[in-house]
Nucleic acid binder design. Structure first.
Lengths: 116, 116
DNA sequence: GCGAAAGTACGATCGCTGTCAAACTTTGAT
DNA sequence: ATCAAAGTTTGACAGCGATCGTACTTTCGC
């Protein structure tokens, strides 16, 4: 008995209404930061199962919800897959420079770093 | 029977050796963020008791330690007062743009905001 | 229709962290 | 010498949040 695929996703917040506290809590978790970084690097939307993260399925759902409520990602369904998109521009408007600084530093942290 | 006032402060980390994780955990707490913002706004070193924070003395000590170990502040004694200095330049070298983004957003969060 | 695929929702743990009060330490002033 | 000022240390406690397994829901392909 189908519900339309539209409202299968909980509402996305207006980024301007998201407290900095929520944003920093979201970005302070390594798994979530990895999700954001992967979205940045891919420069394309990814389904939940398309990420390389070391947690169970239900834990992943939890992390995606936190990111969504922090205004960092937008989710929408394609068939049975939930897609995730970075809300780059909207987010940068409200928190200028933050995403860049975090993602840049995170990339450096995650790489082996072979600099002499 | 006095110990010299020099080594009354635990060692400060090399900022380049501080993991991003530690930095974000430090900045994700509202009290610590307030401390950093006040240091930014004052543009001068402040003694521990010189901050406007709503926690007990021992809790404050805890927060200052977290900030110090995150490479965000440098502490030194002047008489019986422990002074706190932002490690601005060193920190910006390793995490460019991060402090600015967080402090700017934090200032906006803390103000009433009377914009029409 | 039926089964598989992709996630979600729900409880239940469990460890971490922010908090405080109380006792202690060091320095400066009297 | 003593006392006050400024913080620290220690121990205890409470609440949050990351995690997982299991059960459930929706959609797609046959």
């Amino acid at each position: 008995m189908g519900v339309m695929s539209a409202d299968r996703i909980p509402p996305h917040p207006d980024v301007r209404a998201v407290p900095l506290q929520r944003v920093l809590e979201a970005l302070a978790d390594p798994v979530r930061r990895s999700i954001v970084t992967q979205l940045c690097d891919t420069a394309a939307d990814l389904k939940c199962g398309g990420f390389d993260i070391p947690v169970s399925n239900s834990t992943a759902t939890h992390h995606f919800r936190i990111l969504r409520e922090a205004g960092l990602i937008r989710q929408y369904y394609v068939g049975t897959s939930r897609m995730n998109a970075l809300r780059r521009d909207e987010f940068d408007d409200v928190f200028p420079g933050l995403l860049d600084a975090v993602v840049s530093a995170d990339r450096r942290s995650s790489r082996p770093d072979a600099t002499a």
